[in-house]
Design a protein around this nucleic acid. Sequence first.
DNA 1: CCACTTCGGTCGACAATGTCGACCGTCTGT
DNA 2: ACAGACGGTCGACATTGTCGACCGAAGTGG
Lengths: 254, 254
Amino acid sequence: MPGPIQSLSRAAAIMRLLAGGERRLGLSEVATALGLAKGTAHGILRTLQQEGFVEQDPESGKYQLGAELLRLGQSYLDVHELRARALVWADDLARAAGETVYLGVLHQQGVLVVHHVFRPDDTRQVLEVGSMQPLHSTALGKVLLAYDPVARGELNEGPLEGYTSRTLTELGDIDAECALIRERGWADAIEETWEGVASIGALIQDRRRNPVGAVCISGAVERVCEDGFVRPSLVASVRSAARAISRDLGAGRF
Amino acid sequence: MPGPIQSLSRAAAIMRLLAGGERRLGLSEVATALGLAKGTAHGILRTLQQEGFVEQDPESGKYQLGAELLRLGQSYLDVHELRARALVWADDLARAAGETVYLGVLHQQGVLVVHHVFRPDDTRQVLEVGSMQPLHSTALGKVLLAYDPVARGELNEGPLEGYTSRTLTELGDIDAECALIRERGWADAIEETWEGVASIGALIQDRRRNPVGAVCISGAVERVCEDGFVRPSLVASVRSAARAISRDLGAGRF
DNA sequence: CCACTTCGGTCGACAATGTCGACCGTCTGT
DNA sequence: ACAGACGGTCGACATTGTCGACCGAAGTGG
């Protein structure tokens, strides 16, 4: 049966639709957005609701995502092997570098943040675990682009968004940058996504040298950079953390 | 069509199964655990994998939850109205009380933590957003039990687990406690789930006075309690935060 | 205050759809 | 080298989800 199960694919599309639009959606909106008959959409929504993946506002009748997704998302993190092994190294890196640390994996056309260590001694920050970062303008993303053919393939899907004046939006530029990244073994992104923010990232690979994710530090450009370049000492810290995590992953099995 | 969609329910069951077992599960394990034919289970797993809800370890062939769940779970939090309005109040409460703050909603047979503010000036803590707490032995849970008939109904489903010597495991005791909670307007739980931990919770309701969630503070029993009872000043802080959030929710709509 | 529209939801007929169990190649451990 | 278990595929069958018409309620504009 080499075909996806129709009702499941449709249910997934509905959930993604609900996740995308910021506000709640009505039954008819869902049905027309996906080109389904109302009855069909209702059947799927009813089941999703019953399972806790979708909730319905009892008075407006509109639908939104449900709590079970949060619970399952947490379970995903609990089982995540890369994340589990990286926890302590990420902590160390944050302390040594004095900056925010992110751990990300390739997911669809972006990098999914699976771990986030706050910058030590900093004021209030919001946890970004579960959020996505663009591939072509962040240290995490560029590392994956350079080493993971799948990630590079995702880039052909659509035009590249420019976030700041320093964002690379031409595929040729990106490929050149990737070659450089592979050569020196690390990536940086200086104000390519957010003004004032610079980041340095390095690859994490499993024992078979497959790319499985990336670590990066991220912080104010004034602290991370010096004379327009990222500080070599921070690069060394990130690379050593990435190596440590990779080694840990390799040892973990058998 | 008042019946759930079979394939969807089964897919949900598979995801819950994967979330429950700590380790990855093989196709046959999944199939037998749910009483499905291997072919059927495979079809569902294949679709879930394609949609990103499930991932497969390429060399062992075992399945685990997928990254898309984390992303959707995050989207759930983004849309969550109660959480959005409570963010700032929870922060204030944590600062005023000097303790950890949790915000929870009823989900299945427990309380789902939708927000978590670390105790100020404390050392490393793990974020518990997305995790579940029992209904009958935590301040969050007991508040919901006292005010939400649905929560109370869930209690009839199975026997109550005893975590410490102070856990209430008899339905009669629980109901008496709930009456007390309703009378005085707040709940506490002193070493009923974890030794050494005490918590104080209060109800959050929407503008129509429906219970929608609960806030609590939680901390070392030595700090939260005095002479065997929770400190009245902390109770006042929690209740005032709960009122503030409820008011905020009420104002939001119209 | 009443048509008129649009909403969420239900119903029943139809056939497309997912399900089942046998089967295949591979790997593992004996 | 064998036996068993693994993940995965295939095709027939009928169960199952789908569709479009229909319903009452709520909202809207005249």
